[in-house]
Each structure stands twice: as C-alpha cells, then as structure tokens.
C-alpha cells in the first residue's frame, strides 16, 4: 500500500507544475460551459420551465458539474500507456515489481486529487456564483456525491485503461481514441442529460458503463436517484476485472514476442 500512497503523491505533484496550461484549460472549460448552458436552458425555457424534471437551476447545475467532472475523471487525453506500448517502453513498466493496473490507478487518483482544485471546483464555483444553482437538500447527499465521483473516476480509468491496452493489438490506437473522443460526450450524458433522451435510448445507455462516468454523479448531486451508485459500483468492478484480464493477455503477448 505504501508504494501506492507514494504514487498518488507523485501524480499530484506532476500535474501541479503546469500552471499556465491549467489557467488556459480553466478558461476553455468555462467558455464551453457557457455555450452549453445557453443552449440547454433555452430549450428548458421553451418547454415552459422543465424537461424531464430538469428546471433552469438543475440544468445549470448539470452543465457546471459536467464541466468540472470532465477534468476530474479525465474523460479525454490519457495516452501515456498507449505511447509507452507503441515505443516499447512498456516492457520496463511490466518488469517493475508492481501491479501495473493498480499502480497507474494510484497515479490517476493523485492526478484527480489535483484536478479537484484546478478542474472540478472552479467551473462549479463559477456556475454557482453567477447562475441559478441547485444545491443538495439532504446532507447525506454530499458524502454520496464524493463516493459517486470516485466511482466515476475508477470507471473512467477502467475505460481509458482498456482503450490504451488496445495498442498491444492495434499497434496504433489513435483511431480508437478519436472514436472515443467524439462519441463519449453523448454516451456519458455530458452534452445532453440522459433523461432528455427517448425512453428506449435511456434504457440502452444505462445498459452500458458510460453514464457512470458523468451522468451518475450528477444524478446523485441533484438527488434524482441512487440507482446510479449501484450502476457505477457494478461497472467499476467489471471494468477493473476486464482490465486485469486483458492486461494478462497483453503481458503474455509481450513475453511470447519478446518485447
């Protein structure tokens, strides 16, 4: 466990060095939040004030939570492992006396810890100060939201890990990554709340892990349902197990091919 604690701290430190990039990222995040909020609230307004139990305040809250969680779970832009596989450096990682999957998860938790300060809180604070905002009514919602956000992080890590591992077979996973980049926003409920979709589409989406990454913690925060937590817990475990199995095959492949 000791090594994992160190990795968490290292992950936190590594990301805290890019201050200028962080400010630029914050601005971008807020700009897109404004654009998304404008479209969604315009729709809610025309629908006489609510769509699928989202009123104006809930819609703004949905948008700003989404903008914040986006950077916390790191929906896009994690290519470290894929690059190391492509360059062959991964061999070093595999021979280290650690479990690559949990080690990288620990590092990711550190990164996310830093992202709480730089990516999660700023857009939420910005939105809460300047726009109607729906705070949780029940005090218990806060700890549940923390659990849900962590589960979202683990689930997202699980998805990213699998996408990165695909490099072992595809050699170049960039096509897969660009698929993920363009589809994830819609699948995770980031651009439109999943509840806005027609019924059949909602059922179909909740059958996948994707809503666990963003929509679930938002649902918990907005006190819409607690089913989301169970969904997240299931997929977090399922994806970690899948990642473990795929990694084992990947290692076998490397060993057989001799690197």
């Amino acid at each position: 466990m000791r090594v994992h604690a160190d990795l968490i701290i290292a992950g936190f430190r590594r990301y805290s060095t890019y201050r200028q990039a962080m400010l630029a990222g914050m601005t971008t995040n807020v700009v897109f939040g404004l654009l998304r909020a404008a479209v969604l609230t315009a729709a809610v307004r025309t629908a006489s004030g609510t769509i699928a139990a989202y009123d104006i305040a809930a819609t703004y809250t949905y948008v700003w939570l989404g903008q914040g969680l986006l950077g916390f779970v790191l929906l896009w832009g994690d290519t470290t492992l894929a690059t190391r596989v492509r360059t062959g450096d991964v061999v070093v990682d595999l021979y280290r006396p650690w479990n690559l999957q949990t080690a990288m998860l620990a590092e990711d938790v550190g990164r996310a810890g830093y992202a709480v300060v730089t990516r999660l809180v700023p857009p939420i604070a910005f939105g809460a100060l300047l726009f109607p905002f729906r705070w949780p009514e029940h005090p218990l919602t806060w700890p549940l939201f923390v659990v849900s956000a962590l589960l979202a992080l683990v689930t997202c890590y699980g998805v990213r890990f699998l996408i990165n591992l695909a490099t072992f077979w595809l050699l170049d996973n960039r096509g897969l990554v660009s698929f993920w980049n363009v589809t994830s926003g819609l699948l995770c409920g980031m651009v439109v709340p999943v509840a806005f979709y027609p019924g059949w589409a909602q059922v179909a989406l909740w059958a996948t892990p994707f809503p666990a990454l963003l929509q679930a913690p938002i649902n918990v925060f907005l006190e819409r349902d607690y089913f989301s937590l169970a969904h997240q817990a299931f997929w977090a475990v399922a994806l970690l197990v899948a990642g473990h199995l795929v990694l084992r095959r990947a290692v076998r492949k490397v060993v057989v091919q001799g690197g």
């Binding site: 629908a47 769509i51 698929f179 589809t183 819609l186 439109v192 979709y197 027609p198």
Partner: peptide
C-alpha cells in the same frame, strides 16, 4: 470519426427537439 462527431452534434439538436418545438 469526423463524420460521427458531426452526426452526434446533430443528435443533440434532435434529442432536444423531442422535448420542445422551437
């Protein structure tokens, strides 16, 4: 994936219009 990106952005509009008329 560029085609899909564009199509998905269109889906956003279409989803919204399942709930509103304008």
């Amino acid at each position: 994936s560029q085609v899909i990106a564009q199509a998905f952005e269109l889906v956003v509009i279409l989803v919204l219009f399942t709930r509103i008329n304008a």
